[in-house]
Write a protein that binds this DNA or RNA. Structure first.
Lengths: 358, 358
DNA sequence: GAGGAGAAGGCGAACGTTCGCCTAGATCGA
DNA sequence: TCGATCTAGGCGAACGTTCGCCTTCTCCTC
């Protein structure tokens, strides 16, 4: 009795298991390897019997195409790179996953290079991606906004679509209407009768921050109120802890404040905690409106009023745009701005609207 | 006057900008391309002048090595793949980023393939990664635990290190001590005098869930209490909303409960909300202990007592282990279990310990 | 029964690298 | 002066594909 081999796959000269190549398939099927290539790519004319034989052979040896070799000759990898900021920021995480799902739907593979919170290594990410000859890049690392190098590093080599501005490089931007976000939030606080409104901002200088700030200021002017600046604004860093600390500073400077506009929901959670520790009730003493509609917002106590940002849509559309770009369609002339919507819950003082259960 | 060319880089026959190859560098430096290869890889003996000339030429044309071509001949890409569950779960996000940072430190590049919450496409991820001939895979998609195919798909081709069990495949596992997590949490509730302890579990059947459950049961037995099952246990799905709903069910079945052990902090946030809506105070009426020490835990109102899980360490160690494996070191015989620690905050009824500011 | 069309599949070259081996010249010691 | 040794760099082949073109059959039509 002959032992069945434990593994039919081909081996290298040193005996280790090797990926089967197109040639292994060919010799097993008794054809030239070019014919195998033909079959695997669905082109050319091949007799049904041969086709079936080749397909079976491929299965038997466990053939996995070598994208490296293919890319070498086709000058394309059908792979898109995503440079993502620290994905534990759920907001970007959702964006990235939506983008990847869309890419797969369109027949493209994606690889993501994550950069840590400090964005210390965007350059490294670009390198990793271009060494692998991705066909395009989706930038989702707002921390890299100030990176002057990035523009030159990316210059013209590859199609790029970005969530944020890139210095020295004109790329299609996509995102939501941050100005509107600021306007909606502050308008709503004004409707509730608030005049002494503090703001916990995102990172200073970041475009989102500027836009949300600008939208808020506009709402104040529209209501005939003066736009107070200076220490009515405190900088946060998008984290819960940052929001907590900024709120504490705000309360020290302006104990008379009755409302808070906070540039994201995580900071808003920190803010609510800070208010709680200082004995202020939300919304009784201080009303709070955040941004993003992060998952905890709805379930906080009190439930957080916020401006919902369509992250999934953004990811989907951004990726679709990138694919179009790679396919040679002209870049859109203007940035894409998705609208946002105010979600009234408890922290602003509204009777909450009914929400369907998740 | 001659116009300076806007871009010195090489172009393909159709006029589009092309990546410079080693041959472009060679002709510019006046040497054979093999010599360029020698220089770029730091091997061989080359005259200092030539070396400098080559390096300058490489800079001038903006040479970026082609990992595809290199991989073709070296049979290795110095790239590790990570299969990650939906990274908007911050907990996995932190793990992944830590792992990637470690890989970079060790001189390896990483690409991550994200799979959505339903884990509908782990197979696709494995495919994407093996087509790209990554040298090893780090699995971080607990949703895929039940995937029977996965094992065969991965079988023996590549070194794998995993965060979770993979059916039909013996791979080094790494994670934290989930049994201890359960024990610590329930012990602590018992210390506070609780006897009627409800549990909101993670996804049924998942190993983490089983382990945390087992640890809790052990704590009860050790205290001479009977381990109540059945409807003292309600299944959540790790999300805030899931925790909220499970807690509501629990309160319906057992209004007499005085404590809750919840298998992660996000569900715990939902639980606190549910208790609040039913008019129960935390910790006054019901004590709550979660797991993970997610960022919001510390800043919730009340601050959430929890069992801290060392995600960053896990990611770092997992990646280091994978690199070792790829480098040919023998696989560790036993799974790696990192210890966890109880963090007493407000929701269990303790005086909170002082914490340093983040 | 010659000519042509179409089907089936083979062949060679190229993609951008690495790697081992080879060669030409310089240096050196006896 | 001869050969040995070293240095600097060239050469050919291979990696796993794709792609355009070529060859051989078979079958049909007039």
């Amino acid at each position: 009795m002959v032992m069945a081999p434990t593994d039919p796959g081909p081996r290298s000269s040193d005996g280790t298991r090797r990926y089967a190549s197109i040639k292994d398939v060919a010799s097993r099927a008794g054809v030239s390897y070019q014919t195998v290539s033909k079959v695997l790519n669905g082109g050319g004319s091949v007799a049904p019997a041969t086709l079936e034989r080749i397909q079976r052979a491929a299965d038997e040896v466990g053939y996995v195409p070598n994208v490296l070799a293919r890319g070498l000759v086709t000058h394309g990898t059908r792979t898109l790179g995503v440079i993502a900021a620290d994905p534990s920021d759920h907001v970007l995480g959702r964006f990235v996953v939506a983008a990847q799902t869309e890419a797969r739907r369109l027949g493209w593979a994606t690889v993501v290079a994550n950069v840590d919170a400090a964005a210390s290594d965007v350059a490294g990410c670009v390198e990793v991606l271009s060494e692998r000859r991705v066909d395009g890049i989706l930038m989702a690392a707002p921390q890299a906004e100030g990176d002057a190098d990035l523009g030159t590093r990316l210059r013209g080599r590859l199609p790029v679509v970005s969530l944020h501005h890139i210095q020295g490089l004109r790329v299609p931007l996509i995102g939501s209407d941050h100005v509107q976000t600021g306007t909606l939030a502050v308008e709503h606080l004004i409707e509730h009768g608030h005049r002494a409104i503090g703001v916990v901002t995102g990172t200073t200088g970041r475009r989102v921050t500027l836009a949300r700030l600008g939208g808020g200021a506009q709402a104040l002017r529209d209501a005939g109120l003066e736009d107070r600046n200076g220490d009515w604004l405190q900088e946060g860093d998008w984290t819960i802890g940052g929001g907590y600390a900024a709120t504490l500073r705000l309360l020290d400077r302006h104990p008379e404040l009755t409302a808070l506009f906070i540039h994201n929901d995580y900071m808003a959670i920190g803010a609510v905690r800070a208010l709680y520790e200082r004995g202020r009730r939300v919304p009784g003493d201080v009303a709070v409106v955040g941004c993003d509609d992060a998952p905890p917002a709805r379930y906080s106590v009190p439930a957080l009023s916020t401006v919902r940002v369509p992250f999934e849509d953004t990811g989907r559309i951004a990726m679709a745009q990138l694919v179009a770009l790679v396919d040679g369609e002209p870049a859109p002339k203007r940035s894409t701005l998705l609208p946002v919507v105010l979600v009234r819950r408890e922290s602003c003082g509204c009777e909450p609207e009914p929400e369907e259960t998740a």
